[in-house]
Every structure is written in structure tokens, then in C-alpha cells.
């Protein structure tokens, strides 16, 4: 696990062609490495954009209108979950709870959580990272 975190922290995903090296280092089979990586939602096997926007889908955020927010974000970015904007800036991911439930709906841009979000703030956040 720490090894995979290190790889993903560094390059943003776990390329499938490094499975054999991981397998050898950890004394596992390639199949076991594949099984491990794909079990955990956090690990990605494809490259991602420069920034990652995670939108909370859990109950607390739903109680504060996150479903509409999700739809609006997808429409605004022109992508679905697990996709990256055409300019390569933002990858959109679903997440189940960010622990910010007192201030729903919540999203996370890279490592920063944002609470009580609406589309205006999302738009500002996305343009900040897209131009930054």
C-alpha cells in the first residue's frame, strides 16, 4: 500500500506496465497486484488531469442538494465522472464522504476541502486552477 501511494502521489496514477516490477519487489504475482490496485477506489490506472475535483455523493450532501450540483458540474465541465476536461486541467471523481458533513455540500480540489458549495463557487474554483 505505501508503495502504491508513493507511485500515485508522484505521477498521479499506477501505470499497468509497472505491475511486474511491483510484483517482483513485493514477492507477489502480477495478478495479485492487479487485484489489489483495482480493489481500492483511490488508486487509478489511467493518467489524470493536473487537478482532481472530487464531489461528495453521500447522504449528508444529498440532503443539501448535491445531486443537482453533480449534474451541473458535469454539464459545466462537459465530462462525466472519471473523465478529464479537454484542456487536461481537471479530472472529475465521485467521493463518498469528505467528513465535512456539517457544511454540505462538499467538494475537494486536490487536497483542499470546500464546504457549502454552489455552482458560482465551483466555477470560480475551476477557473482558479485552470488559469493558475
Amino acid at each position: 500500500m505505501p508503495l502504491l501511494h508513493a507511485i500515485q502521489d508522484d505521477i498521479g496514477y499506477i501505470p499497468e506496465d509497472v505491475y511486474p516490477q511491483i510484483a517482483q519487489a513485493m514477492a507477489l504475482s502480477v495478478a495479485e497486484v492487479h487485484g489489489f490496485v483495482t480493489f481500492y477506489h483511490h488508486f487509478r490506472t489511467h493518467p489524470v488531469g493536473e487537478h482532481i475535483l472530487q464531489v461528495c455523493r453521500a447522504e449528508s450532501c444529498q440532503a443539501m442538494g448535491s445531486e443537482q450540483l453533480e449534474a451541473d458540474i458535469k454539464a459545466k465541465l462537459g465530462i462525466d465522472y472519471h473523465q478529464t476536461t479537454a484542456d487536461g486541467k481537471v479530472t472529475l471523481l465521485p467521493v463518498y464522504c469528505l467528513g465535512n458533513c456539517a457544511c454540505s455540500p462538499a467538494v475537494m480540489m486536490d487536497d483542499d476541502v470546500y464546504g457549502r458549495m454552489d455552482m458560482a463557487q465551483i466555477t470560480e474554483l475551476v477557473s482558479e486552477v485552470s488559469n493558475g
Partner: peptide, 11 residues
């Protein structure tokens, strides 16, 4: 691994 929606006391 506080994954329950609506909880944040561990955090």
C-alpha cells in the same frame, strides 16, 4: 477509516 456520511468526530 471514518467513512460514514454524517460523521466527522474521528477527523
Amino acid at each position: 477509516d471514518e467513512g460514514d456520511s454524517g460523521t466527522y468526530s474521528d477527523r
